[in-house]
Amino acid sequence: MQTNSAHPAAHSAPALDRQSLLPDCGNCFALCCTAFGFSRSAEFALDKPAGTPCPNLAADFSCTIHSSLRPRGFRGCTVFDCFGAGQKVSQGLFGGTSWRENPESTGPMFAAFKAVRQLHEMLWYLAEARCRTFDPDLAQQAAELGTIIGQAVDGGLQPLLALDIQELHARVRSMLMEVSTEVRSAYFAAGGDHLDAGLRPGADLMGINLRGRRLCGADLRGAYLIAADLRDSDLSGVDLLGADLRDARLEGADLSAALYLTQPQLNAARGSRATRLPADLVQPPHWWPGSGQG
């Protein structure tokens, strides 16, 4: 397998910028276990309407089956990441008073959580765009968008709930695509296996065998990579924005310089200790035996 870790586009991940976007469940009122609903499926063992507590939720907002979520049929819980929205809403917007203590806050709190999660996810991507671009003007634009979003999150409950999130999302998406084109183009001169593999944004690549391939600079934005075999492949500079990596095989793959990779994507995939990741993402515990997650 060839790697490209020394490539000029392989900047270090913006770890410091993202510290506040990491989940802190101990300072959250289990908003992910209450605000969202889910249907019985391979991901969840039962039906739960939105806005209701999960039956596995304890009085102290902890999960009573946290150490065995996957074998108990709650794989979907292990995939979710709130990008730090939980503690921001619980301790910031609502001052540490839970929906149990103040039932009237339930609706607004859950609505705020859904909004802040989307905004924090945008901040996650913008931090990377600002770090990865070679263009100072693009970096400045990413920083300005981040400031706008940060002010929206900190501007109070009513302005937050009235915010046009879709308009912001469109602006962020345009910025991310521009940076992606710039970063990926730095890999094109060296060529790569993606040039003749038919890989493209939104492609149906479920179950495809790309093992050991040098995919540097490919655009897999929004691609369906469910159960794809990416073992030992080099994904440096690959745009993975919104790509579906459920059950994708990542053992030995190099994602250390992949673009727009998130923890939820990794949590849905399969990997090993040999999988190389960006500095501010972690290997999910279920990637190896004996983790207690099945």
Rank of each mutant, 00 (worst) to 15 (best):
G290W: 01
R246F: 13
A190M: 08
A190E: 11
F74K: 01
D234P: 00
R18I: 01
L138V: 11
P284T: 03
P53K: 12
L259I: 04
V179C: 08
A13F: 11
A42M: 09
N102E: 14
V179Q: 10
P108W: 11
W288H: 12
G252S: 11
D137S: 14
S62E: 08
A59T: 13
L145K: 08
T262E: 08
S272E: 08
W287M: 04
D254P: 00
T34M: 04
P285C: 13
D24C: 08
I165M: 06
V238F: 00
S180G: 14
A257G: 12
C63G: 04
S180K: 00
Q141Y: 07
G76L: 05
P136K: 10
M177L: 15
A223S: 15
D204W: 05
L93F: 03
A139W: 00
A42V: 11
G155I: 06
S185M: 09
G271A: 05
Q19S: 13
P49I: 12
G51L: 06
G217F: 03
F188G: 04
D234A: 09
G51V: 07
G96D: 15
V282L: 15
A42T: 12
M122R: 02
L235A: 03
R75L: 15
D135I: 04
L16Y: 13
P55Q: 06
I65D: 05
S5P: 06
Y260T: 00
F61M: 03
Q293I: 10
Y224L: 14
H11K: 14
A85M: 06
Q141D: 13
A248H: 00
E251D: 15
G76D: 05
E104H: 11
S174Y: 15
M122I: 03
G76W: 04
L46D: 11
L176W: 02
G271T: 02
V79L: 09
T64C: 10
R249D: 15
G92P: 01
S62P: 04
A42C: 09
F61R: 02
G155Y: 12
L176T: 03
A59H: 12
T3Y: 03
S233E: 09
C82A: 10
L241P: 10
V172N: 07
Y187Q: 00
E43I: 00
L57K: 01
G26Y: 11
T262K: 02
R117V: 03
L266K: 00
Y260V: 01
R70H: 12
R184S: 04
S236M: 06
N27G: 14
H194N: 12
P71W: 10
L277T: 04
D280S: 08
G37R: 13
D193V: 06
P284C: 07
